[in-house]
Design a binder for these strands. Structure first.
Lengths: 145, 145
DNA sequence: TGTTAATAGTTGTTTTTGTAACTAACAACG
DNA sequence: CGTTGTTAGTTACAAAAACAACTATTAACA
């Protein structure tokens, strides 16, 4: 009655990528949620500021491809919780520069360590060449060339 | 002040997987959304029934790892729109067997074709070996062995 | 200039999701 | 049997995301 083709959902790249993404985020998500009450958008903003330093919401948007409303709300929550501060730009008063507070830096460093350990754990089952190849392919698929 | 490590967000597997998953789903999402008003959960249920034939919500849950409330709501919406019907099981009246209607089959076949074309398009930039390897690695990461 | 368009970011409203509590049916075992 | 536990699925309520409309500021250019 069905099974008209041999199409396998588990080979369909968008599906497979989603499953892998969800599964591989689970344990890390638990850490930033339990430890700091953060959402995915929030740890992303935190990491952008931690890695690249002071920058505007616009720049975060360009790098992460998150929608500006997501960023705006993540920034608001991070500010409430004293993880970052804003300073209006002098040249262009539409812009606000964001930067981590001491507390934000501390949270970033803590989560950075978790992320590094987590990543090695994930890739432990793969050979170094596989890891390099996988990342390259994912970057290609993600349009990050 | 920052940049204390050389950690690169764009190499962090959970992040990278998410970006690739989102980017690679975009165009396909547009099709099932525009053409049938479906959500991701809904096309997934549709495909499970289209590929594997009549089955219960529970089985869909086991195969897809979607939470039962997601499935319950997707099934309700697909039923409303006459894409599937339910029949209570005789042996166990907690179970409901789901199967696609004519209309559901038609939608499935249509989207199947789109999915197949879309997948080849996505993988066109890669060599066949890369594709095979990528899928294997993703299955490993997704816990689908 | 002054008028129109574009940009950075926010807010309001609607959808969708997550979580927990619930119903109904079955199972296990005294 | 009857009590307790488990399972399939639904529903209610809270949290989060999507989308559109908004404010404030800057840019473009007649």
């Amino acid at each position: 009655m069905s099974q008209k083709t041999d199409f396998d959902l588990q080979n369909f790249l968008p599906y497979l990528l989603n499953q892998a993404a969800e599964e591989s985020s689970l344990a890390f998500q638990k850490v930033y949620k339990d430890r700091y009450g953060m959402l995915r958008t929030e740890w992303r903003v935190l990491f952008h500021l931690g890695i690249y330093g002071r920058m505007s919401a616009k720049e975060i948007g360009q790098r992460s491809k998150m929608h500006k409303t997501k960023i705006s709300r993540a920034v608001a929550r991070l500010e409430e919780r004293r993880f970052l501060t804003r300073q209006a730009s002098e040249e262009d008063r539409r812009l606000e520069y964001l930067q981590l507070t001491q507390q934000g830096q501390a949270a970033y460093r803590d989560l950075l360590e978790v992320a590094e350990r987590y990543d090695s754990q994930l890739t432990a089952a793969l050979t170094p060449e596989e890891v390099v190849g996988l990342r390259a392919l994912l970057r290609k698929l993600a349009g990050m060339g």
